[in-house]
Amino acid sequence: MTEKEAQDWLRTNIDVSRETWQQLEDFLALLADEMVHQNLISKLSAEHIWERHVVDSAQLLLFAPKAEGNEIWMDLGTGAGFPGIVVAILSDYVVQMVESRGRRSAFLETVVNKLGLTEKAMIYGDRLENVESHAVDVISARAFAPLPKLLSLSHRFSTEKTVWLLPKGKNAVRELKGLSPKRQKMFHVEQSLTDPEAGILVGIG
């Protein structure tokens, strides 16, 4: 997928207004500026940012229920803002981003404020273990922890209706097989649009 193809995919598959598109471009500009000060994404992936990061994040919306405006999406280990900031821009979810690294959480705060996302996005600048338990509708984690640890740390935020969206790259099937039979039944694997060898674990409960 080229950068143009990635942008075309967004326009075709996600309802992106002119204002929303501008927010995406403003976010990427803020990211580029911050990369001078901290290594948020690799330089190689930055050259393919629409494919490797924007579309890679946006595709998760295809597996989530459409939000009406007060549903909560919790993104674990948001880092540079993927998928949390992208989801906040492209959907009506209230996005809670958990990022314990101080400089990265400060960057996310800056992005939320400058893009006018304060009413639909918030940052927990702390370890997940220190976040008070509450129910959320979607849990995503792009590069947070191995699957057993991820589930152990975050299950207290889930209900029987919570949707889990966990990009796991080439290790998706292997990590799924490492779970107990009961937990394996929660998930199935979807192929990533941006990498034919990568998988996304999609689960409910």
Rank of each mutant, 00 (worst) to 15 (best):
S42M: 04
V131H: 07
T20G: 07
V131S: 06
T2G: 12
L10A: 14
M74E: 00
E132T: 13
L166T: 01
H48A: 11
K170M: 10
G205N: 10
K170S: 13
P196M: 07
E5P: 10
L30V: 08
G84K: 05
F157V: 05
I72M: 00
N113K: 13
R156S: 11
V111Y: 04
H53S: 09
S180D: 13
S57I: 12
V163E: 00
P181Y: 13
K66H: 09
S140T: 10
Q38K: 04
M97R: 03
A46C: 09
L201M: 09
V95W: 01
F157G: 07
E99Y: 06
A121H: 11
A145W: 15
I49A: 04
G79T: 05
E3W: 14
W164V: 08
G203L: 07
T110C: 12
A106C: 08
T78Y: 14
D126K: 03
A145D: 14
A172F: 09
E5F: 08
R103C: 11
V87E: 10
A64P: 07
R101Q: 11
R101D: 02
K177F: 03
Q59T: 03
T194K: 12
T194D: 12
A145T: 14
F27G: 08
A58F: 01
I139P: 03
A143W: 00
P83E: 09
L201F: 02
I89M: 11
A67L: 01
L90M: 07
K149E: 14
P83G: 09
S140R: 00
V36F: 09
G84C: 09
V86Q: 12
P167L: 01
A172G: 07
S105Q: 13
F157C: 06
V55Y: 00
G205H: 08
S42F: 04
Q184W: 03
S42D: 03
I123S: 12
V202E: 08
G79D: 01
D26F: 02
S105P: 06
K149C: 07
D56N: 05
W9Q: 04
W21A: 10
V98I: 14
I200G: 05
L61Q: 11
S154C: 04
V112M: 08
R174Y: 03
L60N: 14
L61G: 08
V112R: 13
V163R: 12
T194F: 08
E175T: 07
I204P: 01
W73H: 00
G205F: 06
S105V: 10
I85Q: 12
D195V: 12
G203I: 04
F63L: 08
T118L: 06
F107W: 01
G81L: 09
L24I: 07
H134V: 06
G169N: 13
L60M: 15
S158A: 15
L30W: 09
E47R: 15
K177H: 14
R104W: 03
S133A: 13
W50Y: 11
E3D: 11
K66A: 12
A106R: 12
G79P: 06
A141D: 00
R156H: 14
I49L: 04
L165Q: 04
I14W: 10
